[in-house]
């Protein structure tokens, strides 16, 4: 197993062999949904790591394990030098000042009975981060920072549009001045023009507040835009990790290649474009294929892919790929 070559000093988050299995009862008796199956990753301070994959690939479960909204079955998460997987709920509360989360559905993640200002003040009050006046001033500043006029402070969530609610969620996440933001599909519920606004806002906030992001999304074009490095997930495992430009322009795992090829491109000459269309559906994470999990849908699969499971290997160009025959 190769460990990524990075400067340990600059690491903010390090996850080692994260496994999350959910026991379920089916007609065949008790089984395990192998949502995340041994993922190791590291995030440097100030960078954006994008996690991309299709529904059911475990990217959200992984994101939740990284902040311990879910307890991983095994593995460890080290944030800023502290192993958060062994901490108690009480200790986590303080630790969570360092990392916050933004959720996909801005309709479900806000308290409908709380006004915008109170929504942003709440985390600071919980952690007693100043006097009431200081907290109010900071909340107003944050609302302004995410683009709200002060007159919006007294509005309730239902008075906001989807994009505005997402900005409110971002302001709340920033309230405790975290170092790391985990954003789980923050723009996928938004219209394209609003999506671009929120992506720009996230870029600006990162620059102004020295933030580190883990950006989880299914849209590779969006992830490529926002992330410095991309990790591609398939059936609970990382299959490729590398710099955003490298992964997008020269994928080395067949799944990444297919994922990029499937993006509908705005193109006047669309008919000339050859694309790789994957056959079949994502296999079930209850009953994963033997060997490489991607082999039943892979164009390049050979016999060894059906028997031997490839591990994430560091290639000489700095890319990590879990494939017997990297492209």
């Amino acid at each position: 197993m190769s460990e990524p070559v990075v400067d340990e000093g600059g690491l903010l988050l390090k996850a080692r062999q994260i496994v999350k299995h959910f026991p379920i009862r089916t007609s065949q008796g008790k089984q395990l949904v192998q949502a995340v199956d041994g993922v190791s990753l590291s995030v440097r301070a100030g960078e954006t790591l994008g996690l991309v994959g299709e529904s059911g690939c475990g990217k959200s479960t992984l994101g939740r394990c990284l902040v311990r909204l879910l307890d991983p079955t095994s593995g460890e998460v080290i944030f800023d030098g502290v192993d958060i997987t062994t901490k108690s709920r009480r200790e986590l509360r303080t630790l969570r000042l360092g990392f916050q989360m933004i959720f996909q559905d801005p309709y479900a993640s806000l308290n409908p009975r709380r006004r915008a200002l109170a929504t942003v003040e709440e985390p600071m009050l919980t952690h007693s981060l100043g006097t009431n006046a200081e907290i109010r001033a900071r909340a107003l500043m944050l609302l302004e920072q995410v683009g709200f006029d002060p007159s919006y402070a007294d509005r309730y969530p239902h008075e906001f549009s989807g994009g505005q609610r997402q900005r409110l969620g971002i302001a709340r996440a920033l309230a405790v001045a975290p170092k790391l933001l985990i954003a789980d599909e923050p723009v996928s519920a938004l219209d394209v023009s609003i999506q671009a606004q929120v992506l720009n806002l996230l870029s600006d906030l990162q620059r102004d507040n020295d933030l580190t992001y883990v950006f989880i999304a299914h849209d590779l074009a969006v992830v490529h835009h926002i992330a410095d490095r991309i990790g591609v997930m398939y059936l609970g495992e990382l299959v490729e990790v590398g710099s955003s430009t490298d992964v997008y322009t020269a994928p080395r795992h067949p799944y990444t290649e297919a994922l990029i090829s499937a993006i509908p491109v705005i193109d006047a000459e669309a008919e000339v474009r050859e694309r790789i269309v994957l056959t079949g559906d994502l296999p079930s994470p209850i009953d994963k294929p033997a060997g490489c999990a991607f082999n039943p849908r892979c164009h390049y699969a050979q016999d060894v892919c059906r028997t031997d499971k490839p591990t994430l290997q560091l290639l000489n160009d700095g890319r990590e790929v879990a494939c017997h025959f990297p492209l």
Partner: peptide, 18 residues
């Protein structure tokens, strides 16, 4: 069109959002 991140592999700092 400008709201969609470029798909040709180029990266821009900010999108020309509406």
């Amino acid at each position: 069109m400008a709201s969609i991140p470029p798909t040709d592999g180029t990266r821009v700092a900010r999108l020309a959002a509406i």
